[in-house]
Amino acid sequence: MKDLAEAAGVGVATVDRVLNERPNVSEAAIERVLGAAERIGYPTGKLEAIRLDATRPIIRFGFVLHKPSQEFYRNFARALEAAVEERADIRGRCDVRFATSQAPSDFASELTQIAKTADVLATSAINHPTLTDTIRTLQDHAKPVFSLLNDAASGVQQSYIGLDNVKVGRIAGWMIATQIREPGKVAVFIGGNRWHGHILRETGLRSYLRDHASQLELLDAIVNLETRQVTYEATLDLLDRHSDLRGIYVAGGGMEGAIEALRESRPAGKVALIVNELTNESRDALSKRYVSLVIATPLDQLCRELVDLMIKAAQGGMSENSGQHYLLPQLFVPESL
């Protein structure tokens, strides 16, 4: 490698980056190293592949998610990396980060930092004026930003991609009303009042029950901060205070707490529990019928379509109008497993 570096007139570190196809090396440096390798007979069969690879444009993707402790978001991060890696038409560089909390300032800080090296961004951020201003600033500086799962800055961001959350809520209502025929009460958990997607799911649930299941009364939404413990304690309290509780819909995170509380307090299927996203825990609860329905985001499809949209925005310029890109949810019942 020292001989090759001397022949090419570059440092050994540059030779290493070229031969191992690492980022941050210019096309001119690549050509110098490859040309020198051919002249001195450097023993590698990768020269043509490296040269062809060098013709593909580099696009740097930045993703900011939250809740790294939750299996769903870890799966999401892996699916994003895989979707970038499988693109043969570009040299994709993928940087996935997690906000340290759900505070708007933490999301804004991560987005601002990652934008220093990324060409195009996507985030699962909450709705807040601080985030809207941050995303607007990034867009004004030609950094397209896409919202994932939650429509974080509608009308400002490049596009939203995820489920139609009103429809998701109506599906949850349909399942509860189908399973439970007697009059009674239904509870809904939302992560917080800054989650636009959760509020839309609550709206969809309420509208379905009003239209088709007037015998079921929807209680006021409970904020669970998407945490297991808060959901667990609140579910036990609901079951204690409402002997006629017929259904629970966890519109965001924290479903593990509701599952645990029902396991301890009620026979399987006595209360219809609807949750989002298929994980090891929700799959197990579904198989044992403590969960009636899992409404899941098709992660692989979302990530492939997102990466395609991000490439178009990075290469073809940003759209002047913010859009919405809806995917069909995946529905899992006990008999699906």
Results as ranks from 00 to 15, higher is better:
residue 29 A to E: 13
residue 72 F to P: 01
residue 59 I to K: 00
residue 48 E to F: 06
residue 140 D to P: 06
residue 77 A to M: 11
residue 154 S to T: 15
residue 101 S to G: 09
residue 48 E to D: 15
residue 157 Q to K: 15
residue 132 T to W: 06
residue 153 A to V: 09
residue 88 A to Y: 01
residue 83 A to Y: 05
residue 101 S to E: 09
residue 83 A to Q: 03
residue 125 A to K: 02
residue 71 E to R: 04
residue 125 A to V: 10
residue 56 R to D: 11
residue 64 V to W: 01
residue 79 A to V: 08
residue 116 K to D: 01
residue 82 A to W: 00
residue 95 D to G: 07
residue 82 A to S: 06
residue 76 F to Q: 04
residue 30 I to T: 14
residue 155 G to R: 12
residue 29 A to M: 14
residue 109 S to F: 08
residue 41 G to V: 04
residue 115 A to W: 01
residue 85 E to V: 02
residue 134 T to V: 12
residue 142 A to T: 07
residue 62 G to R: 10
residue 133 D to M: 06
residue 30 I to M: 14
residue 141 H to Q: 14
residue 42 Y to C: 04
residue 151 D to I: 08
residue 65 L to Y: 06
residue 154 S to C: 14
residue 118 A to F: 07
residue 105 S to W: 01
residue 32 R to E: 03
residue 98 F to K: 05
residue 31 E to A: 15
residue 26 S to A: 13
residue 111 L to S: 05
residue 68 P to F: 10
residue 81 E to F: 02
residue 163 L to W: 00
residue 45 G to S: 11
residue 118 A to L: 04
residue 74 R to F: 09
residue 73 Y to W: 14
residue 41 G to C: 04
residue 123 T to I: 08
residue 60 R to W: 07
residue 53 D to M: 08
residue 142 A to N: 15
residue 127 N to C: 13
residue 70 Q to G: 04
residue 116 K to W: 00
residue 79 A to M: 06
residue 160 Y to A: 13
residue 134 T to P: 09
residue 116 K to S: 04
residue 99 A to G: 14
residue 113 Q to E: 10
residue 82 A to Y: 01
residue 35 G to C: 08
residue 125 A to N: 07
residue 97 R to E: 11
residue 82 A to Q: 10
